[in-house]
């Protein structure tokens, strides 16, 4: 009888010790490690109306305002060759979002439409951990080199 009670007490003490150590470890890890990053997801379409800043051969450097769930200013470096490719950075009030894309042309006139895919791979500020991918669409004015750029998809940051 006595030995049974002793055994129960021992089991209780061991269990309490395990829980206590676990709580202590969890608490110290929380205090010393980085704060947990809460992921946000954003879906939608961002549209940029870009105008030419400068060109060199097949490369265009363009910028313009962006609107949509993320608004701000876009700067893009585009290579207009047999296919369209480029990199872009969206400057928002809370940080930057950068990515790249590739598209093929479809149009047959002064305004050439294009469609393809884009990948978001880095950012800064609130968007330091941003990543995502989606579609890339737009039109290209072959006379003024103006570009309307649309990126659709899901961003996680």
């Amino acid at each position: 009888m006595h030995s049974k009670r002793g055994a129960r007490t021992a089991v209780f003490l061991v269990a309490a010790w395990v829980v206590g150590v676990a709580m202590l470890l969890a608490g110290s890890a929380g205090a010393a490690g980085p704060r947990a990053h809460a992921a946000h997801t954003l879906k939608g379409t961002v549209t940029g109306h870009l105008h030419l800043l400068k060109s060199s051969g097949s490369e265009l450097i363009e910028e313009g305002p962006a609107s949509g769930p993320l608004s701000g200013h876009i700067k893009a470096r585009l290579n207009v060759g047999a296919t369209f490719s480029g990199t872009f950075t969206l400057y928002t009030a809370h940080g930057t979002i950068s990515g790249s894309g590739k598209a093929v042309p479809h149009g047959e006139g002064i305004y050439e439409s294009f469609s393809g895919t884009s990948t978001i791979n880095h950012g800064s500020g609130r968007y330091a951990h941003v990543h995502g991918h989606g579609g890339l669409f737009g039109t290209f004015d072959r006379k003024t080199y103006g570009v309307v750029l649309q990126t659709t998809g899901t961003l996680t940051y």
């Binding site: 060109s55 051969g57 097949s58 265009l60 207009v80 060759g81 006139g109 002064i110 072959r142 006379k143």
Partner: peptide, 15 residues
């Protein structure tokens, strides 16, 4: 060659 802007040439703007 690379970096030649054929698509930016302003030629062939109709089909």
């Amino acid at each position: 060659p690379e970096h030649l802007g054929i698509a930016l040439s302003g030629i062939g703007i109709r089909t």
